[in-house]
Design a protein around this nucleic acid. Sequence first.
DNA 1: CCAGAATATCTCGGCTTCCGATATATATCG
DNA 2: CGATATATATCGGAAGCCGAGATATTCTGG
Lengths: 130, 130
Amino acid sequence: MSSRNMTRAAFFVLTALADQPRHGYGILREVEELSDGEVQLRVGTLYGVLDRLTDDGLIVLDREEVQQGRLRRYYRLTDEGVAALDAEAERMAAGAGAAKRRIAEGRRATAPADTAPRPPTAPGLAGGFA
Amino acid sequence: MSSRNMTRAAFFVLTALADQPRHGYGILREVEELSDGEVQLRVGTLYGVLDRLTDDGLIVLDREEVQQGRLRRYYRLTDEGVAALDAEAERMAAGAGAAKRRIAEGRRATAPADTAPRPPTAPGLAGGFA
DNA sequence: CCAGAATATCTCGGCTTCCGATATATATCG
DNA sequence: CGATATATATCGGAAGCCGAGATATTCTGG
């Protein structure tokens, strides 16, 4: 899809980083938590996303730490990253709203008349099956 | 991404069909219109999506018409399709809300310290979305 | 003490999905 | 008469997702 398309994975990585810098594994856990367990960002997905977001200038490597013998590589949002996330959130909210509104409209249209006898829309021809 | 992931293209096709049945080309135009020109569903994307949604039982072929010498193949949402779209809209709204909230938290945390001391009451962020 | 889980990094290959290009056909507008 | 709009559909390259595996340390339960 077009229109400055941001992938879902990228969106959730940015969201996880929106309040504070985090390292890869932390992002994984945070995405699961912030989505109430609904979204599970996979390890195999993460690093590709991190690389792409870095290339696009939406995140930067903040710092590296060694905690209890384990390396932690922290990333943080750039100003551009914040702006991109904000714009994407706006688009998603708009899309969700549009869907909800249309579902309501559809319900109204299809509404009560259950056994609606097929209106005689003469298809003319559809010459399919023999 | 996991968690019964629906692609963006699929989401917008379902949204375009939510109020009434439409044919392929009509979906293309409707998606552009309902998204205010923000989202452009591509022709090369459409038919694959339509096939997948049909296989998944979220849409069905409603009817075929010949208008002005041109074939029109109308699709419509199934009950399952409506439910799937509704659930996805819910997830998107939640995701958008989470992102917005976190951006606000991040701004507070990264606060430019020197600039005007933030008045206690947060500015407009009425929780939800539009 | 040792096995297994958790924490932490990263790569590879297969599969799915996206989309530009292309093909076909009719109708309309300048 | 050529361009644009309407309308269908396919193909192949590119991008993206994710299961699986590699590597290494620490924590926990039995």
